[in-house]
Amino acid sequence: MKLLSYKIKGSPGPLRMGFMLGEKIVDLQETWRKLQQAADNIDSANAAETLFPADPTQFFAAGDRVIEQAQDVLAFAKANDVEDISFQRGEVYLGPPIPSPSKIICVGKNYAAHAAEMHSNVPEYPVLFAKFANALIGPEALIEKSEKAKNLDYEAELTAVIGKEASHVKREKALDYIAGYTIGNDISARDLQKRTPQWLQGKTLDRTTPIGPWVVTADEMGDPGHLAIRSTVNGEERQSATTEQLIFTIPFLIEFISELITLNPGDIIMTGTPEGVGMGMKPPQYLKDGDITALEIENIGRLENRVKAV
């Protein structure tokens, strides 16, 4: 199932949860309401705002319960008329699938070839850093290049979404704690990142980190350890790898992080990028005003954004 956030173009309203049904986008909460009405659960239908959130952040924060119910919603939509709450792709604006997660945990140097192009050794432990929600944008927003960020770089990353509270989780059970997966572009201001030992200032600038276009639920994704991952800039291929090349696999990362930090539903983990980033090229090729980054991950789709100098 492909879960997304959307709003009608030109609408001042907030982002709402939706899902893909064929080529159309369907409102998730309103379909759930129809399902409850069809089952004569009138009280539940009337309490949809509480029981089945339309707000994307609240939805994912509710965890496995609503993800499982969303599967029932999809089955209902396939078998019933939901045309009145369905939209053509061109009618809606897609936002980040999770606009304000409580934690955005990122992993650096998690592909050996990328570590090498950054003139770094393969790390003994996962290199963790954080982003904040101010950085997140969706698949239709502009990547803002501020005057302070001279050397802006792209990084294609498989991004995992936590589905239930995870503390001291063993790697054998780790994938059971994931709600789904999306694409993340860990945009990095290399000049700001490298001017101190701590990377934060170059990693979480306002409106610089696209995620999306949707979250593919774990049941539909299959094994996240065998996915092709690719990026282009203005149509030129820059990165091409598979998640088999991850130094620290997703189960390892869930175990490692959850021993240090309790992960909550809706938290996201950006798992690292393969070689081919702009900084690693000779000479370096950083993003400019008007450049278009396009990231593709097998079984998820394509995330495309334009860079805009601000």
Rank of each mutant, 00 (worst) to 15 (best):
A113Y: 01
N110Y: 09
Q88F: 14
D55H: 07
S240R: 12
I268C: 04
T293R: 08
D72C: 00
S188D: 03
A39G: 13
G301M: 11
Q71K: 15
K150R: 14
H168A: 06
V169H: 00
E124W: 00
G212Q: 13
I187G: 05
P265L: 10
I105P: 14
Q36K: 14
V215I: 15
D55V: 12
P210Y: 04
A228D: 14
L74C: 03
R16M: 00
S44A: 11
M118D: 12
T273E: 05
K203R: 08
M118H: 05
N121L: 04
A228V: 12
A149Q: 12
A115F: 06
N299G: 07
F76V: 10
A141H: 11
T271I: 11
E68W: 13
P224D: 08
Y93M: 10
P53F: 09
P56A: 13
I257P: 07
G225P: 14
E275Q: 11
I254L: 02
D64L: 04
L94K: 07
L263D: 10
V307N: 10
A228L: 13
I42M: 08
Q36F: 04
G235E: 14
R230W: 07
D40S: 15
G13Q: 07
L158T: 02
Q193P: 09
Q198H: 15
F59K: 05
S100W: 06
K2T: 09
E244P: 06
T217N: 11
S188Q: 12
D191I: 10
I162R: 06
I292A: 00
L136I: 08
L287V: 05
T242I: 10
A156V: 15
R89D: 06
F76L: 08
V122A: 00
P96Y: 12
T293K: 01
V169F: 02
F59P: 07
I98Q: 00
A116G: 02
A135R: 02
T204W: 09
E259H: 15
K34H: 12
G163P: 02
G276M: 09
Y93E: 15
G278N: 01
L28N: 06
P12Q: 08
L303Y: 09
Y125I: 07
Y125W: 02
I183G: 03
I261G: 01
G225S: 01
R195N: 05
H226E: 15
L295Q: 04
A174L: 06
A54V: 13
S240F: 15
N151C: 04
I247H: 00
D64R: 14
E144M: 08
D81A: 03
G90D: 13
K308W: 09
P283W: 09
K203P: 03
I137R: 08
Q201R: 13
T182P: 01
